[in-house]
Structure formats: structure tokens, C-alpha cells
Design a protein around this nucleic acid. Structure first.
Lengths: 336, 336
DNA sequence: ATGAAAGCGCTAACAA
DNA sequence: TTGTTAGCGCTTTCAT
């Protein structure tokens, strides 16, 4: 591995001052009329050895870090893991570094994470909040990093937010399940206090047919899924309904419960879930899932995030991206 | 949300100098005999308003950032996602921030990522390298951040590395599959140039019985899994062998190929895979998987990572952690 | 018992 | 055409 040289090393090696090196690399060489020969010498050296400037000192001087902060509830949630991956890739393209903090859905930790990231001088903040809180303090102060909310749109915030259009997706997903299989649908629904879950529930109710019903939990995790499936099985057998899960974690829990009872998933079962994952291929039954456009969300977020101290634009309505249905419902021949 | 005040704001509000505020908050108040009354006033203010020091300036002064860098091939790989989550949690406990860069298995990007992170002043580096490269330059320079390798142990490095004991795990996993089902095992093996894959292959060969065989690919991704399964199916039917996949990505690809052929997974199939994932619950067949102790790896890494400019300890052999077999092989009753 | 001041490495205006 | 310098906000030593 050849590690890049510092500015000082370049200056020493080429026999010019540190200022000259920086003028050349900043493209200010023309403005200050550094001689072509000097420029070439510096450039040649850097081309072969590389250049690494101390970003800490640079950040202090410029009051700008070329870093942005991401605050998410949980890295192990596949949605947030992918969101983070997409954002990281986009940031790298733009020469930015992404600082990620996870908060385990603890509102206190969200505040602390935001504080930590501001202390580190991030140029922008992307936050998936756990509760409806007043972040006006961050947004109001001029010179503070600009903040964009993602995934969770509590109420109609006067600040900018990017999320999937869960309501519409839910309409489509419910309709798609009905199209595949006329039987009734049981909706295993995580805590509808979360706005994304609430939107999904509204969409489901709107598209529901007689016989469809929802069971609700008080969290959004695997345990909630187990509980919901347990509730369902006390009243019905698995084959009698389509089952729609409000998130992959709920689906995981629901199937864990089935396993725990020593049962297996009937191949004719119709399963629906929000969010998509390659491992849904593993399921032995028919599955309709609603993939979020995570790449699109990441791009939108970076588009609206103002990294310079620009004038914060006036309050705006949330940016909603539509998802894509993925149907794994083909009839499969018997085992290979 | 109440965001913390800066040192200057605290000093102004309490009517003392910035120095005094810092002496109090650094616990140096006794040494410099700040009056109890002053201390109390400062503390009270901070207790109610909070304090946020500019970490960028602090890092520049102290030549220490309380941040560590993590360089991984791919965030979307569940193993690395979880490793990152575990490291992030441990770092937060210790007041550290984790900077993560992903490199898509591109050795150039690894070097650039290391450079970027050093430029940001990280106190330590954790790297999952993509190839065997000479990182001696990083490790040799005194005053440079200490580097620990994780997951990938190329050769017998003269520097410290932490990984799972893939060889032993592979022995156990192969043996466990034979214990469940006497039939032969086909090992779908990703590119064995990766040291973890190579170790798994060695373990498989050691524990293999007559009739067992390995098919090899040239990458470690979903496409490799599809190809390997395609190869297998040209020669054999799915029911005739246990199938052992060298990683979850290979398993994903293998099952994608089965689906693409319009086939389904026979319930009596015995599947084995390295790495565990909750969604393995989704599979309709018997599964034996080998979970890595990712939490243990994260703890080990942070234990051996020297954040201060301590004397780098002498070359050491890799730290190998054992995994845990997870068997999903119980006979399940018919569908609920 | 508290404040003043230097210096971390960089940038950009200004001096030479 | 190139070098010198002030200052970003903090820590730490020294002066008051």
C-alpha cells in the first residue's frame, strides 16, 4: 500500500512552500500566477505519491467538514442498512464522508446523536426520528447544519422530509394480494404510532374487502410478529387467510412463531409484506412484497440537503417516493 | 429537542472565562483551585443547558479525534452490516465515533479509504482487506493510527488480525450435516482465494466422506451461487445431496437459480451454510448453519486496537473466535 | 482563584 | 511569481 504524502512532505520534496502546493492543488494557480514549471513539478510529485491534507485542520479553518451525519434507529434493520449503504456510496462520489449513529429507537439517543454529530462539525444531518419531537431549534439557527428527515414523517412537519409513499404502496399491495387470491387477508400490524406503519394501515383499510381484518401490536420488531401470529393462530388456521405483514421484522417474528409451534408454512399460503429482501426467495409459499425505492430515497435526501449555509427554503411538503411490487407467485413444479 | 450550548455560550452566560469553564468540566477545577461557588454556577448552567465542545478544534489541538475508522468490502453483506452495528455500539459506549467506508472489494478503494480516514484523524483503523497487500507502511510509521485486520487473514500477517476460526467451524458444520443425513454433500464454494473461504474449504475437505465434493466459483456473490447451483443441477437432482454453501450470498444465488428454473426446494433437502440469518427460518427444508460470534469479534478488535500512541506490541498470531452451529432440522408437522 | 497566550495544520488575503 | 501571516476553537502552561 502506498499511502499519500502530506502537504508538508510535498512542499519539502518539490522545494516550494506549502502555500504554493496548495495553490496548485486548489486550482488557484492561475489566479496567483504560479509558473507552469512549478505547477508541473508539484503535480508530477502528487501524481506519483498522492496527497493527503489534514481534514481536521481544514474543517476548523473552513467551518466545513465535508461530512454529513446519519441518525437511524437500528443498523440491523435491513431497510436502514441499505439506506446507509446507498447514502455512503453517493457521499463517496461527492467526496463526502458519512457519519452514522444508531439510536435503538430511543428519543434521548437521537438528541445525543445529533449533538455529537454537530460537535463533529457535520455539514448536514439526515435523521430518521423515533418520535415526533421539536427539532425546530436545529433548523432555525442559521449556520447550523441543515437537517432532513427520512422515512419517518410525523404529522406535517414544517421541515423537509423524504419517505416512501406508504399509503399508496399499501393500497397497491393489498389489491395485488386480492388479485392473486380472493380469500380474506389478515394484516399483522406493528405499532401504528410509527407514521410509516400508520400509513400502511390506512392503505390496507382503504383497499380491504369484507372479511379482511388487522391485528395490532405495540412495537415494530420480531417479538411483535410472534405475538401477532400467536393471536392469529388462536382464532384461525394458517391456510384460511392471506397474511400481510407490516414489515420484514414482523414477518420474521410471525414465521418464528409458526416454527416454534412445530408447524410449517403451507405452499398455498399467500403472504404479503412491506419491504423486499432477497431472502424472501427462501419462502416456500406465494409472496407479494413491496420494495421501497431506497436508492431513490437516498438520492432525494442528498438533493434536498443544503450543505452550504444557503438560505433555508420555505417549509415544504414531504417528498414521497413510490415503491415497486415484487410478486413471487408463480406456480412451481414439484421438487427438482 | 434541546441542543447543547457551546463553551463560549456557557462562559458568557455564567460570567467567567472560557478557560474556567473548561477547567471545571475537565475536572481540573481542584488543581487550579476554582472557587466552589464558580464551579457550582458553571455546573448548574451545564446541567440545565448541556455543553457541546467543538470536536474539530479539539482534535486539531490534541492530535486525537476519538474516532475510529472501519473499512469493509460491502455494507449490504449481512456479516459486515452486523459487524458494523456491533462496533458502533461498542464505540458509542466508549465515547468514540465510528467512520465507515465500504470498498466493493476493490483494493484501490481500500487504500483510498484508509487515506481518507487517516486524513480525518482517526485514532485507529479496522480493515477487512480485499487482497493480500502490504500495509506495513501504515503500521510501521510511529504516530500513525494503529491498524487491526478483521475477518480476512491473508497468510500469516506480522500484524494483528481477528477472525472466526473458519477451519474448525467448517469441520463441525460438515460433521453436523453428516450426522443429520448420511447422504453425500455438495459444497458450493465461492472464490477460495479469500482466506475465509479457503479455510472453510479446508475444513470441509478434512471432514468430507466419500462421495462429498466441492464446486468452486471465482467470486463471492449471488451470481456465483447461481452458477454453482446451475452446475450442480446439470449433473444431479436436488434431492440426492446435502448442499453446503460457503456463504449466505452463495445460498441466495443457489436458491435464485432453483426458482429461476421454476422448481421448489424439497422439504427433505439438507442445506448447510456458513453464517446465520434470521431469515433462514423461511426455508422449507432442514438447515444447519454456522453463526459467527460477531459480537465477540467486535469486542476483540476493540480490545487489541491501541488508540493512544502506545508502543505497538510485537507481531502476534491471529485471534480466532469459534462459531456456533444453529440447527433447524426438527421434523415439522403438516401445515397448520 | 482566574485569565492570557501559544500553537495544532490549514486557507486566503496580502506583502514582497 | 512566491512567501508571510492571521485566525478557526480548543487545551495547557504560565502569569497575574
Amino acid at each position: 500500500v502506498r499511502l499519500a504524502k502530506t502537504v508538508e512532505e510535498v512542499a519539502l520534496a518539490t522545494g516550494v512552500s506549502i502555500t504554493t502546493v496548495r495553490l496548485v492543488t486548489n486550482g488557484q494557480a492561475g489566479r496567483y500566477r504560479i509558473s507552469a514549471r512549478t505547477q508541473q513539478r508539484v503535480r508530477d510529485y502528487i501524481d506519483t505519491h498522492g496527497l493527503r491534507v489534514n481534514q481536521v485542520a481544514r474543517s476548523l479553518k473552513l467551518q466545513r467538514s465535508e461530512a454529513i451525519g446519519l441518525v437511524i434507529p437500528e443498523i440491523s434493520n435491513p431497510f436502514f442498512a441499505r439506506l446507509m449503504a446507498e447514502l455512503e456510496a453517493l457521499c463517496r462520489e461527492r467526496g463526502l464522508v458519512l457519519l452514522t449513529a444508531s439510536t435503538q429507537e430511543d428519543p434521548d439517543r437521537v438528541t445525543r446523536a445529533v449533538d455529537t454529530l454537530i460537535a463533529r462539525g457535520v455539514d448536514g444531518l439526515i435523521v430518521a426520528p423515533s418520535t415526533k419531537s421539536d427539532y425546530a431549534a436545529v433548523l432555525a439557527r442559521p449556520g447550523r447544519p441543515h437537517l432532513v428527515f427520512v422515512d419517518r414523517v410525523f404529522g406535517s412537519p414544517p421541515w423537509i422530509a423524504v419517505a416512501s409513499d406508504h399509503y399508496r404502496t399499501s393500497l397497491d399491495l393489498t389489491a395485488a394480494m386480492h388479485a392473486v387470491e380472493p380469500g380474506p387477508i389478515a394484516f399483522l400490524c406493528a405499532n401504528p404510532v410509527l407514521p410509516s406503519i400508520a400509513a400502511r394501515l390506512r392503505g390496507f383499510r382503504k383497499a380491504a374487502k369484507p372479511g379482511d381484518f388487522a391485528l395490532k401490536a405495540t412495537t415494530d420488531d420480531v417479538a411483535a410478529g410472534r405475538q401477532l401470529m400467536a393471536d392469529l393462530l388462536t382464532r384461525h388456521s394458517l391456510g384460511s387467510h392471506g397474511v400481510l405483514c407490516s414489515s420484514l421484522l414482523v414477518l420474521e417474528g410471525a414465521l418464528k412463531e409458526v416454527r416454534a409451534r412445530g408447524r410449517s408454512v403451507p405452499p398455498h399460503l399467500l403472504l404479503g409484506t412491506y419491504d423486499d429482501h432477497p431472502m424472501l426467495d427462501f419462502l416456500p409459499c406465494r409472496v407479494v412484497s413491496a420494495a421501497q425505492d431506497i436508492g431513490g430515497i437516498a438520492r432525494s435526501v442528498l438533493d434536498v440537503l443544503r450543505l452550504q449555509n444557503e438560505v433555508v427554503t420555505s417549509p415544504s411538503t414531504p417528498i414521497l417516493l413510490s415503491g415497486t411490487l415484487v410478486e413471487r407467485v408463480q406456480v412451481r413444479s414439484k421438487h427438482v
